[in-house]
């Protein structure tokens, strides 16, 4: 084995993959969440559809989205590998194990939370990304230019209460995943410092609450609107 494979298969190397892909996916989350606030604009979906077209056609964004997919793939596969190997490190379990006495529930259940998020992503990509690319999507025209009407697909999905509920449950899982994952990524890279670690932890906590909250506001808003609450 070369030193590169030695590094990436070592117990620290596997974690380095998790942390770099994890931090990258965090930037993706923040961008995705902010862009989607266009759903809340009261213009019948024009701004959102224009934004969706830009995101799916602009070359730099296309490259970035492929990188995001690869990052996600590495994060998921490496995560599953880690969980399986770490399980193998304790073949006989304890009769009584008081994990809560020394560590947070989220830190001990990153794999479980990750699987929930992965499941959500599959549903999510099927509903929107797949429909936009391969589905029978309607077109709308703004000023003579044709746009795929992703807005209507999103609105009809978010007008179902159970779909919104599923979203919120998965966003809670995402929030918990980030609460441990964000600061853990820095620790793995060795970025632990008396001055900066408290800041990283604070930013991580804010991030893991605000980003999922931002994501949650969008379907809730659409649902309430479809019920004519406002």
């Amino acid at each position: 084995m070369s030193w590169i494979t030695n590094f990436f298969t070592s117990s620290v190397g596997k974690k380095v993959i998790m942390s770099i892909t994890g931090i990258f996916l965090c930037t993706f989350l923040a961008a995705h969440m902010s862009g989607n606030f266009l759903l809340l604009k009261n213009d019948g979906g024009q701004a959102f559809n224009e934004y969706a077209k830009f995101m799916s056609t602009f070359p730099l964004i296309r490259v970035l989205s492929i990188v995001t997919f690869i990052g996600l793939l590495f994060h998921a596969v490496d995560g599953i590998w880690l969980v399986l190997q770490n399980r193998k490190a304790r073949p006989v379990k304890y009769h009584s194990f008081k994990g809560g006495a020394n560590s947070s529930w989220t830190s001990r259940n990153m794999g479980l939370l990750g699987v929930i998020i992965l499941f959500f992503l599959i549903v999510h990509l099927k509903s929107f990304w797949f429909e936009m690319k391969f589905g029978t999507i309607q077109y709308v025209e703004y000023g003579g230019v044709k746009y795929k009407d992703l807005y209507s697909i999103v609105v009809s999905a978010f007008s179902q209460w159970w779909y919104v509920l599923l979203y919120i449950i998965c966003l809670i899982a995402l929030s918990l995943h980030l609460m441990h994952g964000f600061q853990s990524a820095f620790q793995t890279l060795g970025l632990n410092h008396k001055k900066y670690t408290p800041i990283i932890k604070g930013v991580g906590l804010a991030f893991s609450i605000l980003v999922p909250l931002g994501f949650a506001i969008q379907p809730i808003y659409v649902l309430l609107k479809s019920m004519n609450v406002f």
Partner: peptide, 22 residues
């Protein structure tokens, strides 16, 4: 030492902090 650690069959650190607390 890292190589010896991994070969001995110990797992990967996931920063739960349980070790230091105990």
């Amino acid at each position: 030492m890292m190589k010896a650690h991994d070969e001995a069959g110990f797992g990967s650190c996931t920063n739960t902090g349980a070790c230091s607390a105990e």
